[in-house]
Amino acid sequence: MSDILNHIEENPKRTKRLIGLEYEQLQQLIQNAERLHYDKQELLESKKVRIIAGGGGRKPKLSLKEQIILTLVYLRHLTTFELLGIQFGVSESTANDTFNYWLPILRELLPSSLIEQVKKNESDLMVVKEILTDYELIVDSYEQVRERPVDNKEQEKYYSGKACKHTFKSQIIILPDAKDIVDVVAGEPGPKSDITMFRENRDNFDPKQKFKGDLGYLGEDLIDTPIKTPRNGKLTIEQKKENKEFSSNRVFVEHRIRSVKIFRVVQERFRLNPKKYEQVILTICGVVRLRIGALILPAEIYAFT
């Protein structure tokens, strides 16, 4: 058993700090991830044409629980795979392979948003869209620094004048009380404006849906924004008061983005293959939904041992 897994089992109250989830939530996630792993392995085995019996080969050094925790530790702390391998007693390449195997499984288990969770069932999706019109959803976006692209056209596409770096941009839409993430768009080029990003994806919602956003969305009829200070002018005391109240209602989206950025793979320079960016961010959003109780995974009857 790895030192990290042993530490978690001996100190379950520290699980949230180490992994980003409560101990019970981690337990449910591991149970569901293991079940999905076995289902995939069974399907894969059924398609094989064997000459000799299965079950041979070198056994993995890490248990399934340790492999899943290794993946979560990387997302939470963004350590190098070399150091991660040392922590779990495996090689750097094994740590890398383990992460790349379990990331898609976690992504499949954890829908990143309420819209994604119900979109497979058209009737459920329509009902959710209708219910959401009773709320004024809050929208915001953030940029994350990425590695400098090699291709010149890619460099131009992703170079953000605002950040003076090459960046990805993601958009998050939440419920007014931040109890759930309603929709996520991840991995757009950093220079893309907030309002363009919103307009490209607003078909995910009912045409009557209303939103609340910052001045980056000024000009979009569906989005309520604060009062902009006129050029060479000042806001009145009443206007400042309105903006302050507006900000206090909109700040919940900042809190939710902060919950996502608790995972350092979202906070720091993205070092993985850029093609994995969307998958990583959506997986993190799914983990956050599990963390805040918006997503409930099926519970198994066996214990976490």
Rank of each mutant, 00 (worst) to 15 (best):
R146D: 03
R258I: 00
K162L: 07
D206A: 14
N11T: 13
E136G: 06
I237N: 14
L72I: 08
F211Y: 08
R202P: 00
I19S: 00
L70T: 02
L64C: 05
L75I: 03
P149M: 10
A95N: 12
N11I: 08
P149Y: 11
D134T: 15
K228E: 10
V288A: 08
N6M: 11
Q279N: 05
N6I: 13
Q117W: 07
L272S: 14
L72R: 02
P274N: 05
R231A: 11
V280H: 01
I181E: 00
T229L: 10
E42M: 12
P12D: 12
V139K: 10
V182Y: 05
E116C: 03
L222G: 00
E245D: 05
G54H: 10
F246E: 01
E122P: 03
K120Y: 07
E9A: 05
G213S: 04
T225I: 09
L83S: 12
R146H: 07
L215M: 14
L62A: 08
Q279P: 00
R58C: 08
E82K: 15
D134C: 09
V280L: 02
H7L: 13
L109A: 08
E238L: 11
P207M: 08
K153T: 10
L125S: 06
R202C: 11
T98N: 07
D224K: 15
G57D: 07
N121D: 15
R146L: 13
I105E: 06
Y101W: 13
E24D: 13
L132V: 00
T236G: 02
T80E: 03
L109R: 04
T94G: 09
N11E: 07
G233C: 09
V90Q: 00
L70C: 02
I227Q: 06
I115M: 15
K276V: 02
I52V: 15
A303G: 01
V127F: 13
T94E: 10
E122G: 04
W102T: 00
K157C: 13
R199E: 12
T71Q: 04
T283F: 01
S113L: 01
Y302L: 10
S112A: 11
S193R: 12
F168H: 13
Q144L: 14
I262Q: 00
D177V: 06
T71M: 11
G219P: 04
D224P: 04
R289S: 05
Y38M: 11
S193Y: 03
G57H: 07
K169Y: 14
P298L: 01
V90F: 00
R146F: 07
F198Q: 05
I86Q: 12
D180G: 06
E188W: 03
S93W: 06
A53V: 07
L235F: 08
I8K: 08
Q239M: 07
L36C: 03
T133I: 04
F304M: 10
V287M: 05
F198T: 03
